Simulated assay, not measured.
Amino acid sequence: MFTFERIDPVAEAQELINFMTAQPWPYHVNPHPTAEDIREAIEAGAYRDDENDSYWILHRTLGRVGFVRLEDLEDPTPLFDLRLAEEHRGKGFGKDLLLSITIWLFENNPQFARFEGQTREDNLPMRKTFVRAGWVKEAHYREAWPVAGGGAVASVAYAILRRDWETGVTTPVPWDDDPQ
């Protein structure tokens, strides 16, 4: 259902600027990036360098529906920044999209043993998507996500292990192992 087309952030700078500034990103640290914010990020390598790589998300019938950036690519556990265009939100794409990203990452990057994502505690659609796609909640960082114009909210981390993805068997988190 979804494929990924690598972005050349320099050649496609205006397309990237248009996409990132055309709609709000209510669950991101900067919900209203400016053209200058995006230009600066492009120049800093935030969309492509040794640690980051970016892709347009293509739907088989709808065309370009979003953007995903893979982050921390020199670490054994990359993260992602997912942005679905406003007109495509709430249409039930989440689980299939996250499964597609997971499959693509693990099939094309044998060095990665885990794949991680974080979202705000109040982003219930994304949190449900993680669970439905077989990801496991691993952390709840209290007051760790800055919110423009308000107090910080919790950041909630989910991950999937390569072996869980390969076998379909979820490795549980040992929540009850605190020393007494």
Rank of each mutant, 00 (worst) to 15 (best):
L97G: 02
F93Y: 14
W56I: 12
F93S: 04
D72T: 11
E121I: 04
E86D: 14
A113H: 04
F115S: 01
L105R: 01
L124N: 00
I57P: 04
T119W: 01
P78L: 10
H88D: 04
R127D: 03
K137V: 08
E143K: 15
Y141W: 14
N109V: 03
R60Y: 11
T61V: 11
R64A: 05
E107N: 10
E116V: 03
F115H: 01
N123I: 02
L62N: 08
D81R: 09
L70N: 01
E143P: 00
A85Q: 14
E138Y: 04
E86S: 13
W56M: 10
P76S: 12
N123R: 01
L79E: 15
R60Q: 15
I103G: 03
G92C: 12
E143R: 15
G117F: 03
E71G: 00
I57Q: 04
T77D: 13
A113C: 01
L82Q: 01
L79C: 13
D75A: 14
D81Q: 10
S100I: 09
E71Y: 00
T119L: 04
W135M: 12
T102E: 01
A133F: 08
R89E: 09
L70W: 08
L84R: 04
G63Y: 13
R64D: 05
T129Q: 05
F112T: 04
I103N: 11
V65R: 06
E121P: 00
P110G: 08
D96P: 08
K91N: 11
M126V: 08
G134P: 08
I103P: 00
K95Y: 10
E71L: 10
V136C: 02
T129E: 03
E116Y: 00
G151L: 12
L124R: 07
I57A: 05
H88T: 07
E87W: 10
L105D: 00
L99K: 13
E116C: 06
T102L: 02
P146L: 08
D122R: 06
E74R: 14
R132E: 06
G150S: 14
F112L: 00
S100L: 09
F106P: 05
A139S: 15
A144E: 12
G94L: 07
L62S: 13
V68R: 06
A144D: 12
E116M: 10
L58S: 02
Q111D: 10
L82S: 03
A139F: 08
L70C: 03
R120Y: 05
T119C: 14
R120C: 04
P146R: 07
G150C: 01
V147N: 11
L98W: 07
L58I: 15
G66C: 14
P125M: 02
L62H: 13
L62E: 15
A144I: 06
E74V: 14
N123F: 02
G92A: 11
Q118G: 13
Y141D: 12
I101W: 02
D75I: 03
A139Q: 12
L84A: 08
G150L: 02
T77S: 14
E143V: 11
T102P: 02
E121G: 11
G90C: 05
A133C: 05
W104F: 14
E87S: 15
G149H: 07
P146E: 08
V68W: 06
Q111Y: 03
H88A: 07
E87R: 15
L73P: 03
E143C: 09
L62F: 13
T61I: 07
L82M: 02
L124E: 11
V65Q: 04
D72I: 00
H59K: 12
E138Q: 07
A148Q: 15
W104S: 10
